[in-house]
Design a protein around this nucleic acid. Structure first.
Lengths: 368, 368
DNA sequence: GTATGCGATGATAGCGTTAACACCATTGAT
DNA sequence: ATCAATGGTGTTAACGCTATCATCGCATAC
């Protein structure tokens, strides 16, 4: 029953120094730059540290060294599977280089975004990654004053302020609809969060519209239900709306696989056969897409790679290896054709660096 | 083209103080305890702060005040939808009370868990939440020495070391299988990550086995494929194995909805009808579960509430309102019966505080 | 008019760490 | 023998903030 009820002050390097019989600095050196310490002393300090279960106070370290050792990421939602993978890519790569990731999830709210940004900057990150753009001018200004490297991802602005890693949202929208047109469909709809706050979805819609106009097809079949991130139920409602209003619709491009799943559901309820009566395409190639009945045509995104690439750029910048000119880093994407548009599984890769090159085609490798 | 190329030192409270013509302390007070500052001064300081885009250095603040203002959470995977919701619950509730959440994702790796814990403790969190247990004794010791409140979630140990928030994993496994037995099935299998590292899954399996034994049924139909977190493909492979080996199997309880989806897929491939030839149950009630074909029987968990509740306990503890005796906080769970076990959608709630009470039954509210 | 209290502000001393430099042996070169 | 170079260690002064106490008016009480 030995319970130390004392308000335990935590162990500091001073305690370790005392136990090892050395100075504070030697403790710090042993942990940070062991090579500068003689083997004998080093061992003594290490033992003392282990003995006391010493955990250095990182805040104090950051303050003193003026290097926080972390990178912040600001994103609209962790629920979004793609963003989550980007976070994984960031986290993994940064960890390898000794950096830690601070995650700021602003739940698709502009106000929270600004406040969260302040909080993140308060931790003095050495760089910041934006997933999907920064929306308030106030936030923009905060970021500029912070004077740290900024990498934008997922968002694909025409003229980038900072370095950008991702893929062209417009091109995704365009190529998917071109693909549907090539299948012979002429009355093609789009289901996304139209009015709502989702610049990426809007860009894909623009691509979609461009494809229809280029082919001289009508472009009025759209619906806006819900807001980003689109949930399954939004797909159900959107599908209901579109099917009521445009019974002639032959194909439908959706804002995400979630939405598409809702559409599939509604089609089943109405006994509308997919893909015979309606072809359906999603976006994001979620885990479940290929296992649905029918399996879902979608767009596979380089989500993890985006994070990895962003982290690599950051490390390079911090190490001063790269000049920081704003630039696009296009990682491309793949259309995955499946049963919901009447195909066996096969992909069509829109590569990164050759926007005008013909897409590569092939059968999907069975190990995803 | 005015570019400040200078290695910009960031704005400190000193700069704000100078601009506002007051002392450092007044700046600090204005931001932290505005009531103690006269309205005139306050306004002057606030204007100066805004003018300079001042963002206080939180590390310095923490160091000085000895209160970091954050809480850490250590979890096995952010990919797990339930854990993610718990994180949301934590984050939301803590934010309301002015705390921030540090997320540590250890990817189901014991080594990473220990290292990550060190790193988190290095930021001197005022409390720590464990999602799904702590696995190495070294980590246990670190935690004890840290002398901060610890809340365990999801994990449901028999004799808790700390406060625990969640639900009984054993009971989930037991009641699901009892439910399958009540439907008349006698040859019931279990598909989870058996050998692998997943104490929660193991507890559910124990509950499942208990149910079978109580009913005098055989309990040998199991398979272990993959490891936590179980992916869809693991479900496919596991189903293949079980169907080959136990063609007489009538019902199958799965480790997660992901796994169950894989099983559904394999059944479709083999033209095995669900639920007529095989009843299938998942775990977690993922978003897609009710929209599958057939819709998937599953277990709905209080994922968000777990986070919320844990955060509330933490706040209370920090404020010294509650004595910290180890205790269980059981939030219960619900069985959601759907087509994959031959039902229309309806639920069966296993409530929190009355383990022996009969479960509540009803029709699922259409708004989830 | 002195005492008392209070509201507003400032001065000072840390918080736990590391950067920078100082110091002291020891070594090797001359 | 003398000097410089070197490796190992300690000393000091920050880093940017806040806790604490001191100070200074000014109002109210007797």
């Amino acid at each position: 029953m030995s319970r130390k009820a004392s308000k335990a002050r935590s162990i500091t390097s001073r305690d370790v120094a005392a136990l090892a019989g050395v100075s504070l600095m030697t403790v710090s050196r042993t942990l940070r730059t062991p090579d500068l310490v003689s083997p004998a002393t080093r061992q003594r300090v290490e033992m003392a540290a282990r003995e006391l279960n010493y955990v250095p106070d990182l805040a104090a370290g950051s303050l003193s060294s003026q290097r926080s050792g972390h990178v912040a990421v600001l994103l609209p939602s962790l629920r979004h599977a793609g963003f989550l993978r980007t976070v994984d890519g960031l986290s993994d790569t940064l960890r390898e280089h000794g950096y830690h990731l601070l995650i700021g999830d602003c739940y698709y709210s502009v106000e929270q975004q600004r406040e969260l940004l302040r909080m993140l900057l308060g931790r003095r990150p050495e760089a910041i990654v934006l997933i999907s753009g920064l929306d308030s001018p106030a936030a923009q200004e905060l970021l500029e004053r912070a004077a740290i490297p900024v990498i934008e991802t997922w968002h694909w602005p025409d003229k980038p302020r900072n370095r950008v890693v991702g893929f062209s949202q417009v091109e995704v929208g365009r190529s998917m609809s071109e693909s549907l047109i090539a299948m012979g469909h002429t009355r093609i709809g789009f289901l996304g969060a139209l009015g709502a706050f989702d610049p990426n979805g809007e860009q894909r819609r623009q691509g979609h519209l461009a494809a229809l106009r280029n082919a001289g097809l009508r472009d009025d079949i759209q619906s806006s239900v819900g807001k980003a991130p689109m949930a399954i139920e939004d797909g159900v409602k959107g599908a209901a709306q579109l099917l009521d209003r445009y019974p002639e619709m032959q194909a439908l491009a959706c804002a995400s696989d979630m939405t598409a799943l809702g559409v599939l559901h509604e089609c089943r309820r109405r006994a509308i056969s997919v893909p015979d009566q309606l072809a359906i395409a999603g976006f994001g190639d979620f885990d479940f897409a290929r296992y649905l009945q029918p399996s879902l045509t979608s767009v596979r995104l380089p989500s993890y790679r985006i994070g990895q690439q962003a982290a690599e750029l950051i490390i390079a910048t911090i190490n001063g290896e790269t000049p920081p000119p704003p630039s696009h880093c296009n990682l491309g994407f793949e259309l995955i054709h499946r049963q919901s548009t009447g195909h066996d599984e096969q992909f069509e890769a829109y590569s990164s660096n050759a926007p005008d090159a013909l897409p590569t085609r092939g059968v999907l490798p069975h190990d995803e």
